[in-house]
């Protein structure tokens, strides 16, 4: 019985040359924590907001230099979060002063 070498070879070459699926790049632990804190930014006590805003600024500056889709995505999330945190800081300030 003749072995179908050509199809086997083609399959092998295709398997080896097809790029493996890349899992999404995980953010560094500190950034991961920051993103998690951002997810809870709405329920965070007002007194913790300035600290979160500072951490956001640090990471926004760090990521500004970085290229690539992952950095772009993290920047997007941090910008969204920063916008919301600043918004909360502005809207809730008068209440605490009263």
């Amino acid at each position: 019985m003749k072995t179908p070498t050509l199809p086997v070879l083609i399959s092998l070459v295709l398997t080896l040359t097809t790029p493996a699926w890349a899992a999404p790049q995980k953010p560094p632990a500190e950034l991961q924590q920051l993103l998690a804190d951002c997810s809870a930014a709405a329920s965070l006590p007002a007194e913790q907001l300035p600290q979160l805003a500072e951490r956001l600024q640090v990471w926004q500056q760090k990521l500004e230099q970085e290229a690539g889709p992952a950095a772009k995505l993290w920047r997007f999330r941090l910008n969204q979060c920063r916008g919301f945190v600043d918004y909360r800081l502005k809207t809730e300030q008068p209440k605490s002063k009263q």
């Binding site: 790029p19 699926w21 999404p24 690539g68 889709p69 992952a70």
Partner: peptide, 21 residues
């Protein structure tokens, strides 16, 4: 970006949803 698992590629990875290939 999709191939790096971002945007559509976060779900369309061949496992969760049909792949980007």
């Amino acid at each position: 970006a999709n191939r790096e698992g971002m945007y559509c590629g976060a779900c369309h990875d061949g496992l969760m949803a049909f792949g980007h290939n």
